[in-house]
């Protein structure tokens, strides 16, 4: 498959008063054309920092890139100037956020915001841009777009605002859409609408999606491949089926088991992951999940596990997959 985005050995840190916080620690993954890759993990695991690194939206300082490349269509985004990045953001990569209000200007009419972006990035006349804006709102199923184009963001409901933001992100037919928790703030019925909309638009416009979420139901619904992050690292990645049905890493296993399912008996206990992820101001030397893992071995404390490849597409970072761990509890599939 043709790759549209390749992240290689990306490491991002934040300078704070306490010292360096290593938010993203050497991650690598890629996104193919028309593919949806879900990045899952808890807050603070580095998934949003990764997304914002691709868009170069991190505040620098305190953030800085330590190593790595972000290759988008053959070019390293980390080497781009702010001006070049603006063009890329406007034309080739779209982004939608959890809270639409962060990217919509509350003092500007919704239509003008879309028109503005079009005129700036695609050099079309205002007339044309307005026509396209209406078309776009129609595409994202905003009813009465001709009328709503002259309204302000606060006159829209949460779901409608998210639609407007999607319209805004899609307006220039981006090759890649980064959706950072796009439905977390929405109700389930609205979430269902928005997810359907994203799938429909993906088919129509041939784009790739990086979906950042913590909702495994959404992942199951949307993604082709899944990247599981924990404490700034990728601990497991693979095809969606591999991650759900052939789970390898204890963290992923627990994560899947901690979500209540509708067919669950009420007296079954929900698996919970005790404790909290480690503070990345002093990242652990060994496996970051050691403190919370039920199957931790002595080796895990001070030695960082490498990736073990279970198939061409499926890999996880855990000592239990090491041949020497054979027979230890937890190493079986």
């Amino acid at each position: 498959m043709e790759k549209i985005l390749e992240i290689k050995n990306l490491a991002v840190s934040f300078k704070t008063f306490f010292g360096e916080v290593e938010a993203v620690r050497n991650i690598s993954f890629d996104v193919g054309k028309k593919e949806t890759v879900a990045v899952v993990g808890e807050s603070g695991c580095g998934k949003s920092v990764t997304a914002n690194s691709v868009m170069q939206l991190l505040p620098m300082p305190p953030a800085f890139f330590k190593t790595g490349e972000i290759i988008f269509k053959g070019e390293d985004l980390l080497k781009k100037s702010e001006n070049e990045m603006q063009k890329i953001r406007g034309n080739h990569i779209g982004m939608i956020f959890q809270d639409p209000m962060t990217s919509l200007n509350p003092t500007m009419k919704v239509g003008s915001q879309i028109v503005e972006g079009l005129v700036k990035h695609q050099k079309v006349s205002r007339e044309e841009a307005k026509k396209k804006a209406i078309e776009m709102l129609k595409l994202v199923s905003v009813p009465q777009p001709e009328k709503r184009i002259d309204q302000y963001p606060h006159e829209f409901s949460g779901g409608m605002r998210q639609r407007v933001m999607i319209a805004l992100a899609m307006i220039s037919n981006p090759d890649l859409l980064i959706a950072d928790e796009p439905t977390t703030a929405l109700d389930v019925t609205v979430q269902a609408q928005i997810l359907d909309l994203m799938k429909e638009l993906q088919d129509k416009l041939d784009m790739s999606i990086i979906l950042i979420t913590h909702d495994l139901g959404v992942v199951a619904d949307m993604s082709d491949r899944v990247v599981v992050m924990y404490a700034g690292q990728i601990v497991e990645q693979g095809l969606t089926e591999e991650i759900f049905d052939n789970t390898s890493h204890p963290y992923t296993k627990k994560l899947l088991a901690s979500v209540p399912r509708l067919d669950m008996k009420r007296d079954e206990t929900l698996v919970s992951i005790e404790g909290t992820p480690p503070d990345l101001y002093i990242p652990p030397k060994g496996c970051a999940f050691y403190d919370r893992c039920d199957f931790a071995m002595k080796v895990c404390k001070d030695n960082m596990p490498e990736f073990t490849h279970h198939s061409q597409t499926h890999a996880s970072r855990c000592w239990l997959s090491h041949p020497m761990a054979k027979g230890v509890k937890g190493s079986e599939k």
Binding site: F18, E274, G275, T276, D279, Y281, I282, Y290, D291, R292, F295, A296, M297, K298, V299, C300, K301, N303, W319, H322, M324, A325, V328, K329
Partner: peptide, 19 residues
């Protein structure tokens, strides 16, 4: 090989605040 034995630990450490 002895490194690949179960670690003796409780998960208490996971709530410790380091800062």
């Amino acid at each position: 090989p002895e490194l690949f034995e179960r670690a003796e630990k409780d998960n208490k450490n996971a709530d410790k605040i380091k800062r």
